[in-house]
Design a protein around this nucleic acid. Structure first.
Length: 440
RNA sequence: GUGGCCGUAGCUCAGUUGGUUAGAGCGCCAGGUUGUGAUCCUGGAUGUCGGGGGUUCGAAUCCCCUCGGUCACCCCA
């Protein structure tokens, strides 16, 4: 391990190629899907008044212990956003765009968690929110958008779990029944579950501890306590998803980590992730959140998908490979003139990806670098070429990819097992055209 | 926040009854090659053995602390 004065803080990292290229692609696909579905992009600030996030519910860990908070120089209490939904609701309350307001986002969020595989303190999400309509068809549309996005990436094994949490008015009745039941079975519960029960009984349903499994399995079912209107809406969502061919599983014990959810709640998981974190996305309806943030009582529905976990799932299933990012042309120069500089510039202006060697290295070293870059073509500028006003074009990558015929005499390579390299000499002014004709 | 495992070159790792100048493979650099990339051959560079303290004649190796990574709990994307 290299000794350096500074390194990234826990739970943060430097994303670099090829990962950054994959993320660019992923985001481009998502933006396209969202645009087709009528969503416009929002870029809210990464930090807000802590109150914006506290309204998410103080019973959730995200708020109670994972908020990155600090005092700024104006003595304001600030938090880095732990998610986008609160910011979007705040933005709606502040700007009052036309309803229904459909918006999508991408960017980092921050949670002070202990890092783990697929879990970072700074992590990227893409997501959408719709403010201002209770229509369950929007729930369906939003879920289908996420499902379609996974499909387009090639993630075919993503599983959708669905539940209805009922209206805010249904919640107390259910909590009462659940608490009574859990209290009765207190002895059978794990210590952690007992702690959770005091703070947020719903979350006990989500316990992954085998010990709690038995108790949870026969706990009262949320769906039995859901109001008629919420129940009908849930039916409508199911019918809609089925009509669209989106597969799902009703998961009566699915609850979400943030308290603001009402009615439809859903979670996407990828079984190919063997880590503890298999959720690649989730969301639901939050009909009271805008109002809680001081806005009008507008309902909302949306989801957030974890970019890093999606990438992990892609790795596990071998999709979304990094696109080849090598240059089209590599320029080898053994003179100290400005010819290489000019040729590089000219080729780049013509739209080609051009790389070259620097530092006046030997031709052998430059050819090695050219070969390694995976460029299909090397342009050689030595004293002979410069004085004759020409450039030598040499095809690279002996072994596999053919670069098209140069129509020139073949130069025998020294590698007997590989296709022979070809080399031709052209006038400087014809280089761009010739190179273009050789590229696929 | 709690617990398990781990931390030696750019990368993957070897290196235990503590013992002289700390190793391998890959990669990198240079040469063999008459300006031309594979292979091969030759040569070369790089480590305060994560950091600090302690035990010892002597520590990569044993002890303590600390930082970082990783996995699980928890939580969630």
């Amino acid at each position: 391990m290299a000794r350096t004065d500074f390194q990234t803080l826990p739970g943060t990292r430097d994303l670099m190629e090829p990962d950054t290229g994959r993320i660019r692609h992923l985001v481009a696909v998502f933006a396209e899907e969202a645009r087709k579905a009528g969503f416009g992009q929002i870029v809210p600030p990464m930090f807000e008044d802590v109150g914006v996030f506290v309204r998410l519910g103080e019973a959730s860990d995200v708020v109670s212990k994972e908020l990155y908070s600090f005092l700024d120089k104006g003595e304001r209490e600030i938090s880095l956003r732990p998610e986008f939904t609160a910011s979007v609701c705040r933005a709606y309350a502040q700007h009052r765009p036309l309803l229904p307001w459909k918006t999508w986002y991408v960017g980092p969020s921050f949670r002070y968690d202990k890092p783990q595989k697929g879990r970072y303190r700074q992590f990227d999400q893409v997501g959408v929110e719709v403010i201002g309509s209770e229509d369950p068809d929007l729930d369906t549309e939003v879920i289908a958008l996420a499902a379609g996005f996974y499909q387009r990436l090639g993630l075919t094994d993503v599983r959708l779990d669905l539940n209805s949490l009922g209206d805010a008015a249904d919640r107390p009745r259910y909590l009462e029944a659940l608490t009574a039941y859990l209290t009765q079975n207190l002895d059978a519960l794990s210590e952690q579950a007992r702690m959770t029960m005091k703070v947020n009984p719903l979350r006990v349903l989500d316990s992954k501890r085998p010990q709690d499994g038995e108790v949870v399995a026969s706990a009262p079912i949320l769906l039995d306590y859901v109001s008629d209107s919420a129940g009908q809406a849930f039916e409508r969502v199911q019918t809609g998803l089925t009509a669209l061919g989106v597969g799902f599983t009703i998961q009566p014990r699915l609850v979400r980590g943030l308290d603001y959810y009402t009615r439809t709640a859903f979670e996407f998981t990828s079984p190919s992730l063997d880590a503890a974190q298999t959720a690649v996305g989730g969301g639901g309806r939050y009909d009271g959140l805008v109002e809680a943030l001081g806005g009008p009582p507008e309902p909302g529905v949306g989801f957030a998908l974890g970019v890093d976990r999606i990438l992990l799932a892609c790795d596990a299933t071998g999709v979304l490979e990094a696109a080849g990012s090598g240059p089209d042309v590599w320029i080898v120069s053994t003179t100290d003139g400005t010819e290489a500089l000019e040729l590089t510039d000219r080729l780049r202006q013509s739209g080609l990806r051009v790389e070259r060697s620097y530092g006046g290295r030997s031709m052998k070293a430059q050819m090695k670098a050219a070969n390694r870059s995976q460029a299909p073509i090397a342009l050689i500028l030595g004293p002979d070429e410069v004085s004759a006003g020409t450039v030598s074009i040499r095809t690279l990558r002996w072994s596999a990819e053919s670069v098209g015929s140069t129509g020139a005499d073949e130069v025998t390579g020294e590698n007997p097992a590989a296709a022979p390299a070809q080399q031709i000499v052209v006038a400087v002014q014809d280089v761009v055209e010739k190179v273009r004709s050789l590229l696929p």
